[in-house]
Amino acid sequence: MECVYSSGDLQVHFRRAPTDTVAVTFSNWTSVQPRPLWEKHIGTSAMFFVALRNHWYQTPDVDAAIQTVMPLISGFDNRIVMGSSMGGFAAVALAERFGATRSIAISPQISLDPVLAPFEKRWRAELATINEWRHRISSSSIPAHIFFDPKHSMDNAHSTAIATEHQSTILWALPYSGHPAGFALADLNLLEHVIHDAVGAGDDVEECRLFSLVAQEYEKSAHRSATVAINDFRYGQKRALAMAAEDIDALQGHDSTKRQLIGYIDQIKSRLTADEGVPAK
């Protein structure tokens, strides 16, 4: 993989493969070392935009980077732009700049701008560093597939706002998947399907059919996801309280998510025990 652009705010890496499709991915918000998004899951040629800080791709060098990489990808018949959260915003907002076939965004934002997203309460520190909104999501004929959690109030508001502004948006609702919805998809081994289908679909009709199958499979198997269980609990449901330790252990997902779920359950049970006047064990 070759670094084809580098600045203090952004790096772009290019990996060429013998395909007529190129994936362009945008890294997500992170509190650790940023890295190329879904690098191990993409088998086609790929251009990885990596934000070196959480700037929501609002820096001047984004334009310079796009100008630099376009000659490298202009010969590809299909250009698929993808991202998650902050990167999902960029995927939808910048798809036109790449002449994209389609964009795929997991839990994106319409913006952090309070004028466009007064409901957004997260990422205040990042918002304070953005002096100018150079790139915004606007009306486009390029299909934008958005995977999101309709039970998550802010993500639902963002997805609805994007669909209102961008007339070619297709919404894929994944209840209790949380933010970003990719964690629950990964629990169920469906994230790889989304990525594979995104770059492998022959046309928009096939793409919708494939993503519909993913959404149906998620609906059938969501109860097996540790991420779904913990979000179900966070959103006020009490299904997890009835789970035995072996039930939680059998959930699909990261061990840290399971430990967090057990911690929540223990806290609630201790509180209930205290309310009943029985010393917690």
Rank of each mutant, 00 (worst) to 15 (best):
E192I: 06
V205D: 13
L241M: 12
R239M: 08
V205W: 04
V214P: 00
C208N: 09
V214T: 07
F211A: 00
L185Y: 10
F183R: 14
H193G: 02
A240L: 05
Y218G: 00
V199R: 02
T227H: 15
C208P: 00
L213Y: 08
A201N: 09
A226G: 06
A226F: 03
S177F: 06
V228R: 11
A198P: 01
K220N: 11
M243N: 03
D232Q: 12
E246D: 15
L185Q: 07
I248C: 10
G236N: 06
E192R: 12
V205T: 14
E192P: 01
I195T: 02
L171G: 07
V194W: 06
L213V: 10
A184V: 04
F211E: 00
S225F: 04
H196W: 12
K220D: 15
V194A: 13
I230H: 00
A240H: 04
R224M: 14
C208E: 11
H193D: 13
E192Q: 07
M243C: 08
A181H: 13
A226Q: 02
G202P: 02
D197M: 08
W172S: 12
A198I: 01
A173S: 10
V205S: 12
E217F: 13
L171P: 09
L188N: 08
M243G: 00
L213T: 10
Y218W: 08
P180D: 08
M243P: 03
E246N: 09
A198W: 01
W172H: 15
Y176V: 03
E192N: 15
N189R: 07
D249M: 12
W172M: 02
V194M: 11
R209P: 00
F233S: 05
S221F: 15
G200A: 07
A244V: 01
H179C: 00
L251W: 01
L188K: 05
G200D: 04
R209N: 10
Q237C: 10
L190F: 02
A186R: 12
R209W: 05
N189F: 04
A226W: 02
L190I: 00
Y235S: 01
M243T: 03
L185F: 13
F183N: 08
R239G: 14
K220Q: 15
